[in-house]
């Protein structure tokens, strides 16, 4: 049985916002199956009582003072925008209300 099904791969593509064609999905499904089978080795490690590590170094409490710093100009902010209008980023119509 494969580690991941074609349907799951299609679901991942939607979650990842990638409009993939059928060929690409097929190709990826095979590769992901191989990779996931390989990385599943992490499950061999008997690690019930092992704490997880999320950061390389154990730093804590890094803060900045509540001070205002210069912002970009609107021109700079919008300089890379694919489309802009009324000093705002113009985006295609949005289907859903905010999640």
């Amino acid at each position: 049985m494969p580690a991941i099904t074609r349907d799951e791969v299609a679901h991942l593509a939607r979650l990842s916002r990638l409009a993939l064609g059928d060929d690409e999905l097929d190709h990826l499904a095979a590769q992901l199956d191989q990779i996931i089978s390989a990385v599943a080795r992490v499950q061999e490690v008997a690690a019930e009582d092992i704490p997880p590590t999320s950061h390389a170094l154990p730093l804590t409490n890094v803060y900045r003072a509540d001070e205002v710093r210069p912002s970009l100009t609107p021109e700079q902010a919008l300089s890379g925008a694919p489309a802009a209008e009324e000093q705002r980023f113009r985006v295609p119509r949005i289907l859903d209300e905010e999640a």
Partner: peptide, 23 residues
């Protein structure tokens, strides 16, 4: 607060669009 959660941009309500933004 004076500045935003993770950067130094101001937080005033009602400013002209995209004038209180940074990278």
């Amino acid at each position: 607060t004076n500045s935003k959660m993770f950067c130094g941009c101001p937080t005033a309500f009602g400013a002209a669009p995209n004038t209180q933004v940074c990278p």
